[in-house]
């Protein structure tokens, strides 16, 4: 056993893994950054239309999703704390709660998008083609940005499910938890982007 630990140590550099994850987060930030740039350009040009279109969205639903994501962000941070305290049981519970919140978020999103689709409002639909430029751009951005964000939620969930099982079979443990740390970092990124998406999409006056 001791021999094995030594062997693992030799090829392990947690600092490097974490730095790698941060760099990856930078690329994600700039990926969304491109979209925020497009958003700002069009919002300045079609301010009035953006305002009117945003009234179509439910602030309640958006706020609910914000709260859900914030809570999930805290619980995944707690999962890391639990792991550092060598509390495997709590770590599993916290990851579980996070995954539940993520699923809830997606459920709400499905509900929200579903209502839009029901009204015939989706990319390529006849109704979209009838809209004027500002409205069309707003909804194009809405679907593209929230869609890409939802895709990141799914990726984050996959990562956390992997973490869950690794914690369960003690691959992630008190001494080696960098994978959980990186999973958590990714999850916070998803939260971070939503923090900006929410006011920009739902709260335009």
């Amino acid at each position: 056993m001791s021999e094995k630990t030594v062997h693992v140590d030799e090829h392990r550099d947690d600092e490097a893994s974490k730095l790698g994850m941060w760099l990856f987060i930078f690329t994600e930030l700039l990926l969304f950054g491109g979209l925020f740039l497009v958003y700002s350009v069009f919002r300045v040009q079609y301010h009035e239309a953006f305002h009117q279109s945003s009234l179509e969205l439910s602030v309640t639903l958006g706020a609910l999703n914000t709260v859900i994501l914030l809570i999930s962000s805290m619980t995944i941070a707690m999962a890391l704390t639990a792991m550092q305290k060598n509390d495997q049981k709590r770590a599993l519970i916290f990851i579980g709660i996070t995954l539940f919140c993520a699923a809830l978020f997606l459920f709400n999103k499905y509900f929200e998008w579903g209502a839009k689709f029901h009204h015939g409002l989706y990319p390529g639909s006849e109704l979209m083609a009838l809209l004027d430029r500002g409205h069309l751009l707003y909804f194009s951005l809405y679907f593209f940005m929230t869609g890409l964000h939802a895709l990141h939620i799914v990726i984050g969930m996959t990562l956390l499910i992997v973490c869950y099982f690794q914690v369960k079979n003690k691959k992630i443990n008190n001494k080696d938890y960098v994978l959980l740390e990186n999973g958590a970092l990714y999850w916070h990124l998803v939260d971070l982007i939503w923090i900006f998406l929410f006011p920009l999409m739902y709260l335009i006056s």
């Binding site: 700039l30 950054g33 990319p123 979209m128 004027d132 430029r133 069309l136 194009s140």
Partner: peptide, 29 residues
Amino acid sequence: LATPVIGITLLMLIAERAFQIGFFDPALG
């Protein structure tokens, strides 16, 4: 830091062609 920007731009171009989402084509706004 720069490559993600072209990544998202090309994704938007693909979305525009596939779903008529209007980002760049004046005809689509």
